[in-house]
């Protein structure tokens, strides 16, 4: 069994009050034992052993072994070392990355560009509401929307919407490529045409 509070046990044992029995008590016990011939004979036959000094030394050593305490100082040193290692590795990785990436070494030039706000405003408005409404309507009228002509219209509409979302994402908030903006408008125009056609079937 593992003794958890070993130091307390040792301290407790050391503080125990000592008591010595008087010699007469030991003599009395001895006399009583010697009076029984069978016991006296058996006792005389018992082998005697002397434990080597090393055993006692080992026991004493175990008893006086200092209790292991968690050394906070040691942990903080280890943590600092680990942190240093991580930072060093990250720095090495960064250096390696920049040596692999030819762009990392290039100088950045900064200029200004004036952009027509009307161009940017084209990217702001969102009329996906009509598209969602017509799809909802389609879901509610499945018997019509499963017709080949109507389902084709719906598929085309979904394809256009997917393209529109991709374009919007590519343009972002500050996309100024007139070609892409015009394409977005063309898609919206076509979408409107399809929504009108689809609505005719659904209403």
């Amino acid at each position: 069994m593992k003794e958890v509070n070993k130091d307390k046990l040792i301290e407790g044992l050391q503080n125990l009050s000592s008591y010595k029995a008087p010699d007469s008590v030991w003599d009395g016990i001895s006399n009583k034992l010697n009076q029984d011939p069978v016991l006296a004979e058996a006792l005389s036959k018992l082998p005697t052993y002397t434990a080597p000094d090393s055993v006692w030394d080992a026991i004493e050593g175990e008893l006086h072994k200092p209790v292991k305490r968690i050394n906070l100082n040691f942990i903080s040193r280890m943590a600092a070392a680990l942190l240093f290692l991580i930072v060093a590795l990250a720095a090495i990785q960064n250096v390696l990355k920049s040596s692999n990436d030819p762009l990392a070494k290039l100088d950045v030039q900064i200029q200004e560009e004036k952009v027509d706000e009307q161009l940017l405003a084209q990217l702001q408005h969102d009329d996906n509401l009509e598209f969602e409404q017509v799809l909802k309507l389609c879901d509610n009228m499945e018997f019509i929307c499963t017709r080949p002509r109507v389902s084709k219209l719906k598929a085309d509409l979904l394809e256009l919407n997917n393209a529109k979302q991709q374009l919007k994402q590519a343009l972002g908030e500050y996309g100024t490529e007139v070609y892409l903006i015009n394409q977005l408008k063309a898609i919206e125009f076509e979408q409107t045409r399809l929504i009108k056609q689809l609505t005719q079937f659904l209403t």
Partner: peptide
Amino acid sequence: GQTTLKVASK
């Protein structure tokens, strides 16, 4: 009518 954009380039 105009917005100024900063253009960073390499």
